[in-house]
Amino acid sequence: MNQNALVEQVDAILPQTQCTQCGYNGCLPYAQAIVTEHAPINRCPPGGDAGIEALSRLLNRAVTTLDTNCGQPEPLQVAQIDEAHCIGCTLCIQACPTDAIVGASKLMHTVLPDSCTGCKLCVAPCPVDCINMVPAEREWTAEDADKARTNTRRREARLKRKHPEDQPLAARTLSNKAALTASANNDAEARKKTIADALARARARRRGETA
């Protein structure tokens, strides 16, 4: 079997949550590292023990316990935006690896729960802390994984066309989750002022609600 075909088989086992807990930029980069760099097969919390065992069988490697430094398996959660406090900064949209958040600049955003993988990458960049993770009303399935893989690859292809010099979005989010992403830094000073102004309005609104 050639290397590319093996990467695709490894990627097919990974859950496609794109959470980056493994330390790589998403499921496909982790699959590539497993095949080409002999990366450990136990770094995927969403895949859990079942994923490790499947990778072990495919690659003829020893079964090992999950590396809990990467995280713990947990039931599927999805992101939920407190729309009353959303300031429309678009940072969560930029952070989402599967295009599960819709909205526009200075307008309210919302999450498409059927497309959300529970990766949590949108939480840290939100400057007003209006994104929470809530229990999903479904379990993660193979169909969900296929959809997430398709959405992720489509998004990365679109970003590559628009910003060929940039790192993948997940890499930018992983390296500095709390900062503006590279694609948000056009006219950075104006953008910072816009967000600062929006933050001030959000804080004033919240003070009024709690008074």
Rank of each mutant, 00 (worst) to 15 (best):
G118Y: 04
I34M: 07
D146I: 02
Y30T: 00
Q32I: 12
G47I: 09
P75A: 12
C44Q: 01
T17W: 02
A142P: 01
M133I: 08
R57M: 03
M108K: 11
R57P: 01
T65I: 06
P29V: 10
C19A: 11
L28K: 15
A31C: 10
C122F: 05
D144Y: 00
G51V: 04
A12G: 07
C70F: 12
P46R: 00
P113V: 08
I41L: 12
E189L: 14
E53Y: 03
P40V: 02
H163A: 00
P45D: 03
I34T: 08
R155L: 14
A100F: 06
D197G: 11
R205I: 00
I52D: 02
P164I: 07
L112M: 11
L58F: 03
E156Q: 11
Y30I: 00
R149H: 04
Q21W: 08
Q167S: 14
Q21K: 14
N2H: 09
Y24L: 08
A170R: 11
V134P: 02
T117L: 09
N132E: 10
S56M: 10
Q94E: 13
C44M: 01
A62P: 05
R149G: 00
A31S: 09
K162W: 11
G71S: 09
S115H: 12
R57W: 03
E137A: 10
L66R: 10
N60M: 01
A148V: 03
K106W: 06
V78K: 10
A100S: 11
L169I: 14
L14E: 04
D166F: 15
C116H: 04
C89I: 05
T17R: 06
A198L: 10
A188T: 13
K120D: 08
N176R: 09
R153L: 15
Q32E: 15
T36Y: 15
V78C: 03
L199E: 06
E156P: 00
A184N: 07
P15V: 01
Q94G: 11
S175F: 15
A182F: 02
N25D: 12
P168R: 14
D187A: 10
T36Q: 15
T64S: 06
Q9P: 01
S183Y: 03
V123T: 04
C122S: 09
C86P: 14
A5F: 06
D187N: 15
E165M: 11
K147Q: 06
G118V: 01
H109S: 07
T181A: 14
E37M: 10
I195R: 05
P97A: 12
Q72L: 15
L66G: 05
A184C: 10
Q72R: 07
I41V: 08
V111F: 00
T17P: 03
N2K: 13
G51P: 01
L6H: 09
T150N: 09
P75M: 05
A5Q: 14
V63S: 04
S105D: 04
D82W: 03
Q80H: 08
